[in-house]
């Protein structure tokens, strides 16, 4: 649906901040882009289509996102790597008062420390965005990835 330019820009700005936060390795700032009672889920398109609930990550509140970041920083061991997000085809499907539902496409390239670069993941973001006093936040971000197969491991969030 067509929303006013200001709303659309606010949504796209949120998306861009999300991408840069992750790609710049500012993961500590990543949970702040979500509401406190948010849902963040990473699930394959195959499971999503079959209505099977278990994917790679399922966080049903912001504290769980903070825990994931703490775990990545303090506990988990994985090779140095970074992402580059490419975002496109933002489609607002519903907009009512202070809430929007948005579908968009992403590609994430993963770059390893030795320079090997892989199209690591591609798929859709299915978002419910809440417009709060502090600006738009993700109330839901469901990452539905098309690439059934995960190379090696998924540490950094998509």
């Amino acid at each position: 649906m067509i929303v006013d330019v200001g709303t659309r820009l606010a949504i796209e700005d949120l998306f861009a901040r999300y991408a840069h936060t992750i790609d710049d390795d500012r993961l500590e700032e990543w949970p702040a882009l979500f509401t406190e009672d948010c849902l963040y889920q990473v699930i394959s398109a195959e499971n999503w289509a079959l209505k099977r609930p278990i994917g790679l990550i399922h966080c049903d509140n912001r504290a769980m996102l903070q825990d994931r970041v703490t775990s990545l920083r303090e506990a988990n061991i994985y090779e140095a790597q970074s992402y580059r997000h490419m975002l496109s085809a933002t489609l607002v499907t519903h907009f009512h008062r202070d809430e929007a539902r948005v579908v968009s496409n992403y590609q994430v390239t993963r770059i390893m420390q030795d320079g090997s670069t892989l199209l690591f993941s591609c798929g859709r973001y299915l978002d419910r965005i809440k417009f709060t006093k502090a600006g738009p936040l993700f109330a839901e971000r469901v990452v539905v990835y098309d690439n059934r197969r995960v190379d090696t491991l998924l540490a950094i969030p998509l």
Binding site: I43, S44, E46, N47, R52, P53, I54, G55, L56, R148, R149, V150, D151, T152, L153
Partner: peptide, 8 residues
Amino acid sequence: VLGTTSQY
């Protein structure tokens, strides 16, 4: 079955 995942 609650989900399947492939890891390479």
